[in-house]
């Protein structure tokens, strides 16, 4: 599998990272280098092997579905780049 600059731009769009055309060209080269090296995993026989999702060999703990925190809007919004009252502010989404 080899990535062309158009595919790189599509991935960049999915990742919400702006990439200009010259950068897409360069990234395609770098990503192909990495993906080519990763291809070695195709030689491993993984038939019948269950995927390992994590290193914690234990069942996920559940907690009671209750509110445990809140009522601290100033702390939550304290790092916001822009705000309007008790809300995050972003460019207009709906006309």
């Amino acid at each position: 599998m080899s990535l062309d600059p158009a595919t790189v731009r599509r991935i960049a769009r999915l990742a919400r990272i702006h990439v200009d055309p010259a950068e897409a060209e360069q990234l395609a080269g770098e990503m192909n280098g990495i993906l080519g090296w990763i291809e070695q995993l195709n030689e491993v026989d993984v038939d019948g092997i269950d995927p390992l999702t994590g290193a914690a060999q234990m069942a996920m703990r559940l907690r009671a579905d209750t509110v445990t925190d809140g009522g601290i809007p100033e702390l939550v919004l304290g790092n916001a780049p822009d705000r309007a009252g008790a809300f995050y502010a972003v460019p207009k989404v709906v006309e």
Binding site: L41, N42, V46
Partner: peptide, 8 residues
Amino acid sequence: RAQKVRAL
């Protein structure tokens, strides 16, 4: 595939 190799 990577998760399966991780299991191995």
